[in-house]
Amino acid sequence: MQSSIINADTSKPFGRKFSNTLYRKNNLFLFLLLTPPLLWFGVVYLGSLFALLWQSFYTFDSFSMAVSNDLTLENYRSLFDATNFDIILRTLTMAVAVTLATALIGFPIAYYMTRYGSRAEKGFFYIAVMLPMWASYIVKTYAWTVILSQQGILYWCINHLGLSGALNHVLQIPAIGGNTLATSNLGRFIVFTYIWLPFMILPIQAALERVPTNLLQASADLGAKPAQTFRRVLLPLVFPGVVAGSIFTFSLTLGDYIIPQLIGPSGLYIGTMVYTMQGSVGNMPLAAAFTVVPITLIFIYLSLAKRTGAFDAL
């Protein structure tokens, strides 16, 4: 039997013979399929990450500004110094605030797209959500410095609406306010929320798309009011999507180093700290240690989400 199969192949062109060989030898097919991406993923992607983590144990001599290979935990200890810990807390607070805001703004848009949008409306919303991502991120951030400046359009609108008094009150709130919108934490928060919003909407929309309408109807049929249906049926089923979106917004905020430089008050973020340590100071080990912080935080966040049963519906 075997020989007749092989004989049947000899007359065929090479491409066909190759396809047939792959069909018969599934392991060879999988080997060819996976080798290039696994090489990239293992060596370039994870390899460089582990090289970075390894460097976080190197020693930095602050007197000679030189890095030596002597392994130490000093970099991790110094993360808990008052100034460094402040940076972590500041970044974490902003990341949490931005994540909550994008989820609150993103959910209704995603819900409308899924439940009410016609095909054309859906297309429009997809483009509208992703359109900002077609422009350079740095250009958009610079554009926001203009929008938020005292000569900018936002101030102009607020003045013409007679709300400048209210704005001044808001800007006087400690931790949120500042001299102007462009130099306040509020301004920074607005820009972060603007920039990362698509990353929240798209996963939520994908998750909503997978919830059959008849589950919501069944809930109403069994006597649940809309708020109960939302809390007991819709939210649990969509929560993995919200978690996926929040991983994007959370980690992107934790690692960003452009927006904190251009908008908002002085004071370093994790991203800007890494940028400074690696660039102007040359303290690569501390920069590496700082990079471990977002990874750890996201890990903690995911285990908390798992504990609440966020992934049970997957």
């Binding site: 059959p212 008849n214 589950l215 109807q217 069944a218 809930s219 049929d221 069994l222 006597g223 649940a224 009011k225 109960q228 007991r232 049926v233 649990p236 089923l237 049963g309 049970d312 519906a313």
Partner: peptide
């Protein structure tokens, strides 16, 4: 109350929670 064509059971709840749902709400 309705019995749906494809049952429309809540996939994230166990069978008992599904049945108890109408009473719980």
């Amino acid at each position: 109350n309705t019995v749906f064509q494809d049952y429309a059971l809540f996939p994230h709840m166990n069978v008992l929670d599904n049945v108890a749902y109408g009473l719980r709400v």
